[in-house]
């Protein structure tokens, strides 16, 4: 069955990239609303990290199920 961590990871990485781009392009005046904090940039990075973590977990999970004997072989 599809591991839900793939779509979660991919989607939040994508949204993270969009937010970071938004934060890089924008001028300080655009952040008057968010108390002069470049929330897009900061939160975009948070989402990227979260997305990457999910992808990493999904990748590890896939390796564990695809090759049941993987750990034993690498030990050899």
């Amino acid at each position: 069955m599809l591991d839900i961590r793939w779509p979660i990871g991919l989607m939040f990485s994508l949204v993270g990239v969009l937010l970071v781009l938004c934060g890089v392009v924008a001028s300080p005046a655009d952040y008057r609303k968010s108390l002069d904090i470049n929330i897009d940039l900061i939160w975009g990075v948070v989402l990227l990290v979260f997305g990457a973590l999910m992808l990493l977990l999904a990748w590890k999970g896939a390796r564990a199920t695809d090759e049941p004997g993987a750990e034993g072989r690498s030990a050899k």
Partner: peptide, 11 residues
């Protein structure tokens, strides 16, 4: 509406 700039608003 008060706090979110474009980007966060979409999220």
């Amino acid at each position: 509406k008060k706090y979110c700039p474009t980007g966060m608003l979409g999220l």
